[in-house]
Nucleic acid binder design. Structure first.
Lengths: 205, 205
DNA sequence: CATAACCTGATACTCAGTGTCATTCATGAC
DNA sequence: GTCATGAATGACACTGAGTATCAGGTTATG
């Protein structure tokens, strides 16, 4: 009658992982990411260095693993909004719902984002994760594209640009301490594509 | 009557750097980036490990230092085209002239780009360099923006999106072995912003 | 209970990157 | 030409990330 055969191990593993990450995160915020070693983390968490390393392949993952489900979340949201014919609004909506799913603990997320952009290594690794999501997004975009619009380049660019919007919006959001509305920030970011890109509106129509 | 007092050292240093990079690059292509150690590179180049490391802070820089001038090149090109009122075309032109400056040795650049996207560490580091160029680009865009358009978010998004276009276009270009015209590829990428983002053209006008 | 799978801690290892120090060599001043 | 300064070099030692292996203990399962 156990939840799943052998599943208890998974549950336990997940819980340990979360606890290790919690302890480690405090250290990172206190001392700075680069100043903390795996030996420090292991000691703080009360496990051996070996064990700690078995839960997180790299130091970056200790912080960034929380972003892992985001790729699938975005893809799922795109699937759910397949009817939407406008790529930009579809992307915007998908990003918002995925991000909202991420913003459970406002304070915690803001702290993470602060730490991330104080730390080049974390920025780099997060960007890397982002680019791993892109192929999935591109595939969704192409599924519903009209035959004439099938240029893979277009889909790639839109996916990449949308992810940049998310990242920039999250940066603003974190800078505001989580006060501003993420949907508004996304709108402001996506406006870069719809607003006429001109210094002076020389064609008032 | 020497070029500059003490300047010979700089010249010499630059030349050595280029030679070390050349030797190292051959090794990387032959054996794979991750398989080659600094000790290998030093031996192949006939210098000590210490010396090699003094010329390149990281293994990634041995390959990617050629991209360093690109940030300034883009910024300069934006300055030169200050009259252009359309952000997108201004960015497109700046990227093309900067990239053309980069495409001196077609074969070499194509080989570099191949190596880069076979190697996650190189991708990550190159993306990092890219994001270092962004602030300079954003500043240029905002200088000439109309007061109403001063939202820093807009400029950030456009700069980021444009850089993604460059990267994607270079990927296509390298995949074609340097055959396709980079200007055409950039046009195709930037079309993602001007083409109506709709599955079916429901407004044929 | 027995066994197989898993978790843990210990240990040893490779390699990136930093820092120090003594030697050597080129440059520039006298 | 000689000498002093500063840079380049190589040797060495060190920290820390990440990988791999192994023995002993624990937990699920039949």
């Amino acid at each position: 009658m156990s939840a799943a055969p052998g599943g208890t191990r998974q549950i336990g593993r997940h819980a340990v992982r979360a606890e290790l990450a919690r302890v480690a995160f405090d250290r990172f915020c206190l001392t700075g990411f680069n100043q903390v070693t795996f030996a420090d983390l292991a000691e703080a968490a009360g496990v051996s260095r070996s064990t700690f390393l078995r839960y997180f392949g790299t130091k970056e993952d200790v912080v960034l693993f929380v972003f892992d489900p985001l790729g699938d979340a975005i893809a799922d949201a795109l699937d759910a909004d397949r009817a939407n014919e406008d790529d930009w609004s579809r992307l915007r909506n998908a990003l918002e719902s995925a991000a909202t799913f991420l913003v459970r603990d406002v304070q915690h997320l803001a702290t993470i984002l602060d730490l991330v952009d104080q730390t080049p290594a974390l920025c780099a690794r997060l960007r890397e994760k982002q680019s791993e999501w892109r192929p999935k997004i591109v595939a969704r975009l192409q599924e519903t594209a009209s035959p004439a619009d099938r240029s893979p380049v277009i889909a790639h660019v839109r996916a990449a640009a949308a992810l940049e919007c998310l990242w920039i919006a999250l940066g603003q959001w974190s800078a505001s301490g989580g006060q501003e509305d993420l949907g508004d920030l996304l709108d402001a970011a996506f406006a870069a594509f719809s607003t006429p890109a001109r210094a002076q509106t020389d064609a008032p129509l």
